[in-house]
Design a binder for these strands. Structure first.
Lengths: 125, 125
DNA sequence: TTTGATGCAAAGTATTTGCAATCGG
DNA sequence: CCGATTGCAAATACTTTGCATCAAA
């Protein structure tokens, strides 16, 4: 059974606190202000476990992963210039016949993920 | 100006030939049957260039990238079990007010990407 | 007490890059 | 010719893992 260690709870708290979708390293820096001798490996291990528990969300980006403390279904906007990730507050509906796809292909759909790509407000101009 | 080397054209040909969305390494193996002494670095370099030219498409997966020789807009199904990627032939429409989002956030949308996640036919059972 | 979790460092994996040699236009 | 491209190997970047020790329940 999983244990609630100081490390794990601080990692979760720090992630829930921000809306910046930090990378593992960025989160490591934040957590280190509260647990100076924590190791990067521990951050990775816990992000993995917290993700499996559904307490956080892993966002696959091009070069590395980012993490999101908000687990309600929502989509992301990815800036092609600075690589930052923003939340899309609006609901995005899909018009797609899941049943027909599943019958035709034999694949079982679990969920969808919409990525919105472009240039963020800071990078325009 | 870009040059049409043997390496570049064979890489493009081999990628166009398959529907399996190979990784750089997988494509390297295929290309090596025609150019035995080609190096993996050359494959990476050319995939990058071909992508910029819009001749192929880079698909960001969790741990590594895959590449697609089909550049017509289409979506992908990602198997969570075996990590294979399949084409979604059906059109997926989005109900989303792009203009309102752009005005509200200041971000400029270039395009959308829908990922369909689940378990593929081979992995079910 | 017991076993999952930690810190550390080393290893792994995917990708990029420096450089001298080569080749396409 | 001349500069883009190559093969090679070394270097990066991100992430995972082995292991002895520690600590939560």
């Amino acid at each position: 059974m999983e244990r609630l260690t100081k490390q794990r709870s601080v990692i979760l708290e720090e992630l829930k606190k921000v809306k910046t979708h930090p990378t593992a390293s960025e989160l490591y820096l934040a957590v280190r202000r509260r647990i100076p001798n924590i190791s990067l490996g521990t951050v990775y291990r816990n992000l993995e476990i917290l993700g499996e528990e559904g307490l956080i969300m892993k966002i696959g980006c091009d070069t590395f992963n980012r993490f999101d403390g908000e687990t309600k279904a929502h989509q992301h906007f990815f800036c092609r210039n600075c690589q930052k990730v923003y939340d899309v507050e609006e609901n995005i509906e899909l018009k797609f016949n899941q049943k027909i796809f599943e019958e035709k292909t034999g694949h079982k759909i679990q969920d969808f993920n919409v990525g919105v790509y472009g240039i963020c407000k800071d990078c325009r101009r």
